[in-house]
């Protein structure tokens, strides 16, 4: 095969992997060490784990469980701490898009699950991020039933607002922001959704209600508060800006001061 990168030598990389293994949420976890030889620098990080898993399977040992799907950085399924960094060392890159050419032969790599109270561990590197879904279910939407929309161009949106909205909407819901935050805060995730919808004219009517409901659920799930450390933005594979947290705080403050309490819940339809 034409790997195309001869600078790493034809034999590929030799690595020492320390991977967190834990059978279930109740079981006790531990690091296990796996040497891996001849890793092609053109492999993605997950392909490297595939190779390990094939090897483990052939040796009769339980393969490492990890979440993954699209492998092109958009579904948000994958995510692990790689040498202490959510999604590893490359900026704006999800684990599946991280390539082994970022590492060199002889490297030791620690691989752990995303850790946060609100993300209970299921097995090995797989965690439960359904807290994010519950936050969206409380208010991360515009209430419009199918069929009741008017012509798309009847509601112009300033290009700069639409662009900012799109910047925030690019969030893939991977949870790296939470994993990277010392407080395990979800404010970048929530701020991104509040911004995505609130910046558009069609999202304005529910702007206050949305932010109150989402923040209430965020707190209920056990996420922490923002401490202005900005690790979230640094870890975000889509470079979602902390500006969205500022917008979240502003909207929340305004909504808290002006919103009647009853309208924070209730019917969306």
């Amino acid at each position: 095969m034409s790997a195309g990168h001869d600078d790493h030598g034809t034999g590929g990389l030799d690595l020492t992997l320390h991977i967190w293994r834990q059978e279930s949420s109740e079981a006790e976890g531990r690091f296990e060490t796996y040497p891996l030889h001849g890793v092609s620098p053109d492999m993605s990080f997950l392909e490297m784990l595939d190779v390990l898993n094939e090897q483990l399977t052939l040796e009769g040992r339980d393969p490492v469980a990890f979440d993954h799907d699209c492998r092109e950085g958009i579904c948000g399924s994958c995510g692990m701490m790689i040498n202490g960094q959510a999604h590893g060392p490359e900026r704006e890159t999800a684990t599946c898009q991280l390539h082994m050419r970022r590492f060199k032969s002889g490297d030791t790599i620690f691989i752990e699950p995303f850790r946060a109270r609100a993300f209970p561990l299921l097995k090995d590197l797989v965690v439960d991020r359904s807290a994010f879904d519950r936050i969206i279910a409380k208010g991360g939407f515009i209430s419009v039933n199918t069929g009741s929309a008017r012509d798309a161009n009847s509601l112009p949106a300033a290009k700069q607002d639409a662009d900012l909205s799109m910047d925030a909407a690019a969030c893939i819901g991977c949870g790296a922001c939470v994993a990277a935050c010392p407080n395990a805060a979800a404010m970048l995730f929530v701020g991104a959704k509040v911004s995505h919808l609130g910046l558009l004219p069609q999202g304005k009517p529910e702007r206050s209600r949305r932010v109150l409901a989402m923040v209430a659920q965020m707190d209920a799930e056990g996420f922490g508060n923002c401490g202005n450390i900005y690790e979230c933005e640094a870890a975000c594979p889509k470079a979602i800006s902390v500006e969205n947290i500022a917008r979240l705080n502003r909207d929340y403050l305004l909504a808290s001061a002006t919103e009647r309490p009853s309208s924070a819940q209730g019917e969306g339809a």
């Binding site: 939407f141 515009i142 419009v144 199918t146 069929g147 009741s148 929309a149 008017r150 012509d151 798309a152 161009n153 509601l155 112009p156 949106a157 300033a158 290009k159 639409a162 909205s165 799109m166 909407a169 995505h196 919808l197 558009l200 069609q202 999202g203």
Partner: peptide, 22 residues
């Protein structure tokens, strides 16, 4: 055409021209 209307109403941030239209 209904799909585009529906998606815009939901807040799908489609690309826009400077005039604010799609």
């Amino acid at each position: 055409n209904n799909i585009i209307d529906q998606c815009v109403a939901q807040g799908v941030p489609f690309a826009r021209e400077y005039g604010g239209l799609l």
